[in-house]
Nucleic acid binder design. Structure first.
Length: 646
RNA sequence: GCCGUUGUAGCUCAGGGGUAGAGCACUUCCUUGGUAAGGAAGAGGUCAUGAGUUCAAAUCUCAUCAACGGCUCCA
């Protein structure tokens, strides 16, 4: 007999060799029907696998993320089985579950499949699912595994098997489909009740650009049809928040092929919004001891040779421009740091001057591959809310902390709660990618880890994601469609001060090398605004929104009153406009609602006679009438309260 | 850069080998109104660009460009 401990702490005795599924059946038939996989002593495994010794057992259903993952992983197998039946001879790469669904990388040979063939595959999958095919796990030797796929003629699987350790290789068989797989899998395919293939894409084999590109098919499955319907509706909703769509509708920014790829044009309203964000950060930075600087958009190529950027990125940059007579080469600036280093070097510094914090909204230009460009989140010209802090080694930690506080202040002010903090360190296996001494790297990595810990920040550590000159801490958020984007960044750099031979005189009257911290709380204005648009679905906070109120005269008779009102609002620094059109009130309201203007001020006979405004709030409806003064007070208070913490 | 899909009016989209359609937006006129679309008329397009097939191409073929979904990359 063995003792099984369930998550609620209860213990039960069973005969050895019992499966998680048997345990579920002992609790209730309903539960057994819903069990997708199990966790035994913390290890995810098949619900049908025998348990031989005392164990903690957790039954996983659709309500557990790991249950979903198992379902989707099995769905990838199901799709592969369907595709193998419909397109005999295809070769399979890998087919994992992902955050929302699964994919399988497939080599279709010369055939190019299109998404109008999806329904055919979906139907075949459902047909196979209804057969309730059992997933059978089998341990195989390496030789056996190689033999099987050699016979089948699947080079990708053979390559995968060659990288595996003998004795740890398992096959899973469902219906007529056998796949190399670690598992776990569903008890049977009958759990899959709704199937949707989502998209088709090229994907390099093993993510390597130099290798063959396979066809990746993405899909998602559910245990109930209704859940699929809900999921598709959710996707539709998310599309409405897409900053590219809202940016067009709200007239915030645009692109023009004549101006060039990835070069955003900020329209008046977008520029207003961005300007407010910049003003806000300038205020925060002034309080935190930053000084604004301004540097040119180009720099001599030697500047970037000194910084090391030329060697690293020169080939992937916009081609240099040159002076017509002397032929001197200049680069569009891809970074602000070299310029700021030269500002530091402009005069000798004492330790008493440090830390020195130079801030600049610096527009930089980077050649991004054409296929990478994406709305405002990935562009070729963008403005960093950049600053460089020059300090003594002893000051690094405190400075790092105070930068983190600025980032948190911004995220709080804009209600960004769902973000990931990532610490990016060197790739220990590939030290040649980085410049600078081991000792300096270690010091910097240590400082970041300590600060994160002291601030109690939950972080993920990413090895190999560091910049070539130093480790960093990045703040990432998701867009409406779930894609991750990096916003704020803080980077410790012991290398540039070295390369630029920056110095300060210490209290010992000796020359010392300062440490540099690069930081950008927004990251780039473009990307930040994109994420902000999606975060608030275009309903910007009152202190940021380009248009705070719109005055809607009931008829042209009240235009004079509207104009008087507008003057009063402008005098109180409220951003407002008048809808002059000879349209009915209902129409003006509808249009203002569509434009997401926070306040609509309706004025007619009654308002004019009594000096009132009738106030309607976006999304909330009629608030009734109030005196003009009361409205101005209301909106001013709202703005004050929103910005008081900043 | 690579794979796939798409490209028709400012926007959203229908059509499809025989000289271009709708709704919204725009202009003018009528209307002067009370909390999510008042009415009428008008203007607007080398059907992304270039080549090919054809008596005839917006429609079929190819190439180029761009957008979109991914992959790779991201100082």
């Amino acid at each position: 007999m063995i003792t099984i401990t369930l998550p609620d702490g209860s213990e039960k005795k069973y005969v050895a060799g019992i499966s998680a599924m048997d345990i579920a059946k002992g609790i209730s038939e309903g539960l057994a029907r819903n069990v997708l996989a199990a966790k035994v002593n913390g290890n995810l495994q098949d619900a049908l696998l025998p348990i031989m010794e005392d164990a903690r057992v957790q039954l996983l259903t659709w309500n557990d993320q790991e249950g979903k993952a198992t379902m989707w992983h099995s769905s990838a197998h199901l799709m592969a089985e369907a595709i193998e039946l419909l397109y005999p001879g295809v070769k399979f790469g890998i087919g994992p579950d992902i955050e929302n669904g699964f994919y399988y990388d497939i080599d279709f040979g010369d055939y190019s499949i299109s998404d109008n063939e999806f329904p055919k595959i979906e139907n075949k999958m459902l047909e196979l699912a209804r057969q309730k095919q059992v997933f059978t796990r089998r341990e195989v030797s390496k030789q056996e595994a190689l033999d099987y796929f050699t016979k089948k003629g699947d080079p990708y699987k053979i390559e995968l098997i060659n990288d595996l350790e003998d004795g740890r290789i398992t096959f899973y068989e469902s219906g007529n489909f056998t796949d190399l797989c670690r598992g776990p899998h569903l008890p049977d395919t009958g759990h899959i009740k709704a199937v949707k293939l989502l998209s088709i894409a090229g994907a390099y084999w093993r993510g390597d650009e130099t290798r063959k590109q396979l066809t990746r098919i993405y899909g998602i499955t559910f245990p109930k049809k209704q859940e699929l319907t809900d999921y598709l509706a959710l996707l539709e909703e998310a599309k409405k928040r897409d900053h590219r769509k809202l940016g067009k509708e709200l007239e915030l920014f645009a692109f023009s092929p004549r101006v060039g790829l990835g070069l955003p044009l900020w329209l008046p309203k977008g520029a207003e919004l961005r300007g407010r964000l910049e003003d806000f950060l300038k205020l925060v930075q002034r309080k935190a001891g930053y000084e604004q600087v301004i540097t040119p958009h180009i720099g001599n190529v030697n500047l970037y040779k000194t910084s090391g950027h030329f060697q690293k990125y020169g080939a992937d940059s916009f081609r240099p421009i040159s002076t017509p007579v002397e032929g001197e080469e200049y680069f569009l600036k891809p970074m602000n740091c070299p310029h700021h280093c030269e500002i530091y070097a402009n005069k000798p510094h004492s330790y008493k001057d440090l830390p020195i914090r130079y801030a600049e909204f610096g527009t930089v230009y980077r050649y991004e591959q054409s296929g990478e460009l994406h709305g405002l989140t990935r562009v070729r010209s963008f403005t960093q809310d950049d600053a460089h802090i020059f300090c003594t080694p002893d000051q690094v930690k405190d400075e790092f902390k105070s930068v983190m506080d600025i980032v948190m202040k911004i995220f709080n002010a804009l209600d960004f709660k769902d973000f990931i903090t990532q610490i990016s360190l060197r790739d220990p296996l590939n030290p040649s990618k980085y410049i600078g001494s081991d000792e300096n790297w270690e010091k910097a990595e240590q400082a970041i880890m300590e600060v994160a810990q002291e601030r109690g920040l939950e972080t993920v550590i990413a090895y190999g994601e560091a910049a070539f000159y130093g480790p960093k801490m990045d703040f990432m958020v998701r867009d409406a469609l779930g894609r991750k984007w990096q916003l704020g960044t803080i980077q410790v750099d012991y290398n540039l001060p070295e390369r630029f031979e920056l110095e300060y005189t210490g209290s010992d009257n000796e020359k010392h090398r300062p440490v540099m911290i690069h930081r950008a709380p927004f990251g780039s204005m473009e990307r930040f605004v994109a994420v902000l648009i999606e975060h608030c679905a275009g309903n910007f906070p009152i202190w940021l929104t380009p248009e705070q109120a719109i005055i809607l005269p009931i008829s042209e008779k009240y235009n004079d009153y509207a104009e008087k009102l507008l003057k009063l609002l402008k005098n109180s620094d409220i951003r407002a406009q008048i809808d002059w059109r000879s349209e009915k009130t209902g129409r003006k309201i509808r249009d203002a609602e569509m434009k997401k203007v926070p306040y609509m001020l309706i004025v007619g006979e009654k308002e004019e006679a009594e000096g009132l405004v009738s106030v309607r709030k976006h999304g909330d409806g009629d608030l009734g009438s109030m005196t003009t003064e009361a409205f101005i007070e209301r909106i001013s208070t709202e703005v004050r309260e929103a910005t008081s913490e900043l």
